[in-house]
Design a protein around this nucleic acid. Sequence first.
DNA 1: GCCGTTTTCGGCCCGACTGTTTTCAGTCG
Length: 583
Amino acid sequence: MALTNQEIADIFNNIADMLEIQGENRFKFLSYRRAGETLGELPRDLQAYVDDGTLTDIPGIGKAISDKIKELLETNKLEFYEKLRAQVPESLLEIKAINGVGPKKAKLFWDELGITTVTDLQKAASEGKLRDLAGMGAKSEQKIIDSIQALSRNRGRTPIGNAKQAADAILAELVALPQVEEAVIAGSIRRGRTTIGDVDILAVSDEAEPIMEHFVSMSRVERILGQGPTKSSIELRTGLQVDLRVLPRERFGTALQYFTGSKDHNVKIREIALNKGFSLNEHALRPIDDAGNMLDESHYVYCGTEEDVYEKIGLPWIAPELREDQGEIEAAIEGKLPNLITAEDILSDLHMHTTWSDGTLSIGEMAEAARERGKTHIVITDHSKRSVVANGLDANRLLEQQAEVRAVDAEMGEDFHVLHGVEMDILEDGSMDLPDDVLAQLDFVVASLHFGLTQDRATITMRLLNAINNPHVDCIGHMTGRLIGSRPSADVDFDAVFEAALKTDTVLEINANPARLDLDSQYARRVQQLGIKLAINTDAHSTKMMDMLPYGILTARRAWVEPTHVINTWSFDRLYAWIQSRG
DNA sequence: GCCGTTTTCGGCCCGACTGTTTTCAGTCG
């Protein structure tokens, strides 16, 4: 069994950490870390790039790292890594992951006290053995004790839906303060990442101190990680970290640009700024003269908007969702940024549930709610019978439902249309949960995996291919079945599935539920590149879930998706004509 | 270790906060 991209990515991340602990050249270990981050988000298996001879076309992958990837794929092992592991205990990496402990401290504890595990460190700290080490003291020791306790609260990254909710609540509190002129969410929430490491909030004000004071003393704060005149960090009771930055109005553009990230995007933007004769930070563009000296403050160029920042360095504004150093800067230079899809482009929802299965509203109520949200047409797609706990429909109930759908459609008038479909289970043996003659009577069929998600790749792929090759199936719902943070993706041969979808003109869904966001952006980007149609659906079981559409839009925009590739942007007439043409 | 219409060698973004220091290293983002 070949190593997965993520397993190989993890190895490079570990190598980066180990080299850093060893005190290796900074740019060297950063290269490994960058490679690790990149490999974890590729849309195809690494073996496919090896076969194509395109491995070193991936940014940040040069000769040394590509050779190591090949060695890992061929032998499942890496000599370089094994040697490193013999020198640096791997458990040190868990110590380095403790907030406030970096490579230097981890090495110090190891060298001086022989500490290699978090348990060892906790014991040493509680016994007061750390405070006498060079550069340490009682406060540092206590901080480590607190951070180790926090480890159990803080379980990695937070799904964007949860993080956004927490961020909005804090934002509302801040905006209510008299000193706050404006406050916005920046960071990875603004970029629309599916999971969030920490929440970044930027506030505009000339009077930061009372804002900081309020921020760190909010009732939901578990502990204060740092508090300064312009920047503070807190940890919430949920374990989520929130950073607040306060800057005056005239610096809002540079500050928002800086605070939105990503880090890789910003590094490149700052390099471009340098080439244009400016050193860029969150405060201003600072001119540099021909001798390389920075001019004094009177020459600083302040930017009140992000557009200003990009314009001053010769670029068009780049949408936050694109700022991952995935080619967006090159596209901006060439004037080839995509015309990104927006929520206003979406006219329909092609995947939603009602009280006929596990939804909370009737067909009529869902239709009205969709109309209130600016849609012109929907497809009712309740579960099929295999989903017993969801009260899935058998053929008889499904056809019974059709009468009600037709009635509601008639009631809704000429300017709103309700079509009848189903979200049909793709069964574990690869067969469909409803017979062809029943499917043929429906307007639109979404086929989804709900069970047997841990089957091997060949089986999962066979099931998906059977659905795609069924002439009645129009769309594959939430393809990998993942639930972010709680259930991993099914093991799919994406290349095979994409090839079949293209050939049969089957639509692939971006499910907007923030717990799913499936397809994820790296796959959706490839789907668009291949010319396969996309749908962005809410999979709503209630009106509340209809309002989750923005998460699907964010994911699509991160995938560089343009409205022309998404069938939810089509008018009813166009969609209906396409359905008819499929027979 | 990666990368290149200014370079195949010599660069590789920039700052805030903390705690331990008498001016700065470490950590984080």
